[in-house]
Amino acid sequence: MPSIVGAIKVNTVSGSGVFNVGDVYKISPSSSAKTFAGAGSFNTGDYLNVRNDYSVTNVNDSDVFDQNSIANI
């Protein structure tokens, strides 16, 4: 259904966000990420007592493409 839209100001759209004005059939944003983290990396909170005597994160990745995002499917 057509409509009249007034002035629009967009400050930012994040990496996997979508901004649309008007009719649309399908919007399906997709994104992929690969995260390397060692022991105790994502601990959050107050008064944490985390002890990691020995921690090794292997980041040797021989693949060229791990998570392909093609044609926004």
Rank of each mutant, 00 (worst) to 15 (best):
T35Q: 09
S62E: 10
G38E: 13
A7Y: 13
F19Y: 07
N11F: 01
S14M: 02
S69T: 12
S41A: 15
N58H: 03
R51Y: 14
V13D: 01
G22M: 04
N72P: 00
Y54A: 09
V56S: 05
N58W: 01
T12K: 06
K9P: 00
M1D: 15
G40P: 07
P29I: 08
N43C: 08
N49K: 13
F65C: 00
I70F: 02
A7D: 15
N43S: 11
G45Y: 08
N60L: 14
V59E: 13
D66G: 11
T12F: 03
F19W: 03
N68P: 01
V18E: 06
D23S: 14
D63K: 13
G6V: 13
T12S: 08
F65T: 14
A37C: 03
Y47H: 14
R51A: 05
G17R: 05
T44G: 01
D23V: 11
S69H: 04
D53Q: 11
R51I: 15
N60M: 10
I27N: 13
D53I: 12
K26V: 09
G17D: 02
G45R: 04
K26G: 01
N72K: 05
S62A: 05
F19I: 09
G40R: 03
F36D: 13
F19Q: 01
V5Q: 11
K9Y: 09
V56Y: 10
A71K: 04
N49A: 10
Q67L: 15
N43T: 12
I27H: 05
A7I: 10
I73A: 02
F19A: 05
N11Y: 06
A37Y: 05
V64F: 04
T57E: 09
L48V: 08
I27V: 14
V18M: 06
D66P: 00
P2V: 10
V50S: 11
T44F: 07
V56L: 07
V13E: 01
G17C: 03
V10Q: 03
S62R: 09
M1H: 12
G22F: 04
S28W: 02
D46R: 08
T35R: 07
V50G: 00
N72S: 08
Y54L: 12
A33T: 15
V59G: 03
A37V: 12
A39D: 10
D23P: 01
V5M: 04
S3I: 14
S41C: 07
G38H: 06
A33C: 01
A39F: 08
F42V: 07
S16P: 00
S55I: 13
V24H: 09
S16G: 06
V10R: 07
N49D: 15
G38D: 07
A71F: 05
N72M: 04
G6F: 08
N52S: 14
V10T: 14
Q67C: 02
D46A: 14
V24M: 03
S3T: 15
N72A: 07
V59Q: 12
F42N: 10
D23E: 12
D61E: 15
S30T: 14
D66A: 11
A71H: 07
V21A: 14
A71T: 11
V18F: 04
D53K: 12
I8A: 05
N11D: 08
G6C: 07
I27D: 11
